[in-house]
Design a protein around this nucleic acid. Sequence first.
RNA 1: GGCCCCAUCGUCUAGCGGUUAGGAUCCAUGGUUUUCAUCCAUGUUACAGGAGUUCAAUUCUCCUUGGGGUCACCA
Length: 463
Amino acid sequence: MTVTRFAPSPTGYLHIGGLRTALFSYLWAKVNGGKFVLRIEDTDEKRNSKEAAQAIVDAFAWLGFEHDGEITYQSQRKEIYAKYVQQLLDEGKAYKCYMSREELDEIREQQEANNERRRYNGKYRNFEGTPPEGVEPVIRIKAPESGTIVVHDGIKGDVSFEAQDILDDFIIARSDGAATYNFVVAIDDALMGINEVVRGDDHLSNTPKQMIVYEALGFDLPKFYHVPMIHNENGKKLSKRDGATDVMEYKAMGYTPESLLNFLVRLGWSHGDQEIFSMDEMLKLFNPKDINKSASIYNTEKLNWLSAHYIKNMPNDDLAVLLEEYGIMLTSHDKKEIVLDALKERAKTLKELADLVNEVLTAPIEYEEKAMKKAFKGNALEVLTAFADKVNASIELHLPSDYHTLMEATITELEVGFGKIGQPLRVALLGKLSGPGLDDVMAIIGKDETLLRIENLKKVVEE
RNA sequence: GGCCCCAUCGUCUAGCGGUUAGGAUCCAUGGUUUUCAUCCAUGUUACAGGAGUUCAAUUCUCCUUGGGGUCACCA
């Protein structure tokens, strides 16, 4: 069975790059009918927080993907790591290194001066004598000094590293006894049964080190998939400085989970020419072999288009429920269908849709100056008055078509074009020259409000 | 700097030796619409450069250039 994982370090919120990795990882597990587990890498006690871990869980909940089983916290597994450190020590595959930080620094400076690669010199690799006083040792693993290490990557293909270029006896446990990253990931992945590791390709150069740990401990190697980074508009790695990268901020901005997920799945992955993917389709079609090898640049145009697409095609009942998040209560509104039909294809986000609804439901506070100039030429006021009289005289006004009939009647009577009534009326109702269909607007706000808005405008014009 | 990865329209991408290099987005134009938006149609824009291999390279190889990642007692 396929078991994948998402293993964030909770140093802040979940950002868009991490989310995509999580998505790929999740999809790949589920496509194979396997499991997707969540592990919080919180061994750096200074930098992590419970809130951040919670933020990840919240984001998952919003997007609708659940992890299997309990969350694993690395901070609770220290004894396990210590046990394996001891095992390697006992087997002679690791050793205590008493080199002081000062000495290490000195060596590194020296190497830098000689234009050599910075690396530990192996001083205590075969040390037999009496250890120096007053130094708490670190534990280093015996890494191969030569040879080629090949990562068989599901996305990048075979990537080979020369041991002499990249390795030294790296530290697996600090002087305070805490195990280090490259050691614990390997152990956790192996112990948790993760057999397909999907992660960012910034981890590719760590992989040889982890492979050495797997080998030393006799664990089976997982299949690796190193997915390319998402870059910001400047082509750099996405960072916290890049504006709204917190996943939950996308919710606040009014994006739906399906549009965000659809956007992300197409960032780096493709299935022919298809652009629109429901979760069900992703769950059927996703395969890491179709992930691009190159990094992609994050850009919101496509996201906006997708978001608009999903909003346009969403049933009004669903839309009404979602809009409650944004302060719009339409679920039991008698004009719900007209409101949403008239407005949903004009919004790129739920937030925009909410604003549009408010705009229609609220009488204009002011009128655009250029709209006034353009609309109120000639006998505009007369036309508007004639229309208002008709509205006033009508008893049964409910549907958009009812109002449309009155508009038609007005222009026929006065022998003018549609624009002659449309423009002034639009300004009266909305305060500007653009917006949804007038008959829809009037049906939504009703007879009294329509007359009120016309009266309001007439007062302003007559001044 | 060492090592590693990457390179098709501005952006997301299809392509897997022979194509008028396709789609999407964006932009522009036209149509529909009383307006705006939607929708429809049309259009502009790409194989980083140089050597090979081959009858034939966007596609395979190498080099150059450019971009990115990584080199901690962080994860």
